[in-house]
Amino acid sequence: MDDVLIVITLLLVAASATAAVAVRDPVRQALVLSLLGLTLAALFTVLQAPDVALSQLAVGTALTPLLLTLAVRKVHRRPHTRDDGRGGETTGSTESAGAIESAAAKERGE
């Protein structure tokens, strides 16, 4: 009877892992990856391995999405800073208006 739970969680893991591969955009992939982590944690709990489930949750819930989205943000921003060629003189004084403006643009994720 407990096999029902194992089958359900295994199917969920298989479905979310397949979706994580099928989705191509890295940010959306990170979202599917979050769900894969959750289903894996449920599977580990069902298989009586709560230590592994805790490891999976600790890493997969907030840390992996944060690392992934930060990396995506850095990669996406690179062409912009090259193209507009703005703020070349702001190296010394970061307080200047240009630096703050470009930093604000950065914080908004442009």
């Binding site: 029902v4 739970l5 359900i8 969680t9 969920l12 479905a15 979310s16 979706a19 099928a22 989705v23 979202l31 599917v32 979050s34 769900l35 959750l38 289903t39 449920a42």
Partner: peptide
Amino acid sequence: AAALLACGVGPTLWGVA
């Protein structure tokens, strides 16, 4: 728990994907 996983997490998987 099985019902929650099948009927709750299943649809959210569709929503996320």
